[in-house]
Design a protein around this nucleic acid. Sequence first.
RNA 1: GUAUUGCAUACUGG
Length: 310
Amino acid sequence: RLLLNKLIHLYGKCGAVDEAWRVFADIQQRDSFSWNLMIAALAENGYLERARDTFSKMGRPDVVSYTTMLRAYAQKGQVFEARDIFDQMPYKDRVAWNTMISAYARTGKLQQAELLFSQMEEKTSVSWTVLISGYAREGEVQRARLLFEEMPDRTIVAWNAMIGGYVHSKLVEAASGMFDRMPHRDVVSWTSMLTAYAHSLCLHKAKWCFDSMPERNVVSWNAMVTAYAHKGLIDQAQTTFDRMFKHSIVSWNTLVAAYAHVGLVEEAVQVFRQMPERDQLSLTTMVNVLAQAGRIDQAREMFEGLTSFD
RNA sequence: GUAUUGCAUACUGG
């Protein structure tokens, strides 16, 4: 059963909901892990109703089942439904509280988030970073900073959240100040700074970050491609893309946007055609590219593809 | 004292 549960998880992660369901259905004695994994698999792949359905068919949902549903609603931006789940919970642990606070925070309801935060008995470092990053996202870096200063044991994630906040508010100096001051830097810290320099068109500094970081992952590579793209250096962007050992959908979207940015519409179309998978952003980008190039019929075709997404 | 499940930070258009 342990292995079957793991299979549900794996299938869920790669979007194979039907396969996950088949495994789930075949398990003789499902435990709460099987149920929770199945609910998560459904929710993560957009089947909110089926997730809810499975959730209600579960005999005794535990705190994880509730939290999984809570997060499912939160991800869809359905905060009221999320709150409903939260209020129904017979027992709430700290993860449940954090998830609810996060639901408020990432929909910009920071007053609600902070209210819940203040009502929380034993806050964890996640509670703090949820709130800090929430304010940072909204551009309220000063409030984020106050919380950061107030935070008892600042984790590297809290530091990174602050840096990210400064980067989004284009306060590159403040970001680099924090970056220098933090006790340790990880790949997220480095990539945040890389992004900051990419957006402010400081290519040499971006490249310096990329070369200096102790380890790189797909996200940092993508950020480097973006840095070249924003400078209009399409060949460098392409070369960097080619050197990557693994491409995510973001890598592909970045490359399409890079060609579009320098006006190479046909090349953008070629890249788009090569994409192993596409999301809404891929299509939206192509709609814009084609429309601006006057290829209205093709743009319309893309646009129609978009409506089948949601 | 960490590993079958739920929460936070970085990358792509707006």
